[in-house]
């Protein structure tokens, strides 16, 4: 299980290969990559800057991964989240979950992403033709996280 908050880009195939290496118990790997879009709320986005809370951000993601491990059979997991200035088409977040079977891998990957979006301290500021604006939290993200409570 590891968490990395970093400015530099990541390589999903290298990360999956590293996770698989030497672990013959792994039968399923689910992954998610979040990418910067060029339009948000109807405005074109030139760049975005991601701010985080060093220390707490890593801790909160580790806590989320621990919860996933408590609910599903997770053999290994990795979260990489980028910070700093990003532009459309850039990768922003990576979640990889390895399990014995696909059901656990899929569910844990989606759970980690839903909780990360609503609990991990990151904030996006978009630069649009109208200037800079902080992105508002979305009710749909809260709803997505809520469904795991049942």
């Amino acid at each position: 299980m590891s968490v990395r908050v970093q400015q530099q880009d990541f390589d999903i195939s290298a990360e999956i290969a590293a996770m698989r290496r030497g672990n013959p118990k792994i039968g399923a790997i689910a992954s998610f990559v979040g990418v910067v879009r060029d339009v948000n709320d109807g405005d074109s986005v030139a760049t975005m800057t991601l701010e985080h809370y060093p220390g707490m951000t890593e801790k909160s993601i580790s806590d989320i991964m621990g919860q996933a491990r408590g609910r599903w059979e997770v053999l290994d997991a990795l979260v990489i989240h980028r910070v700093g200035t990003l532009k459309p088409t850039d990768q922003i977040v990576l979640v990889i979950v390895a399990s014995a079977h696909r059901g656990d891998a899929f569910a844990a990957c989606e759970f980690i992403m839903d909780y990360l979006k609503t609990r991990a301290p990151f904030w996006k500021k978009e630069i649009t033709p109208q200037g800079g604006r902080w992105v508002d939290a979305r009710a749909s993200d809260d709803k997505a996280a809520e469904r795991w409570k049942t």
């Binding site: 809370y53 989240h81 922003i92 991990a120 990151f122």
Partner: peptide
Amino acid sequence: AFFPPVTGG
């Protein structure tokens, strides 16, 4: 720490 609702991911 005080902060607005989070918007990562």
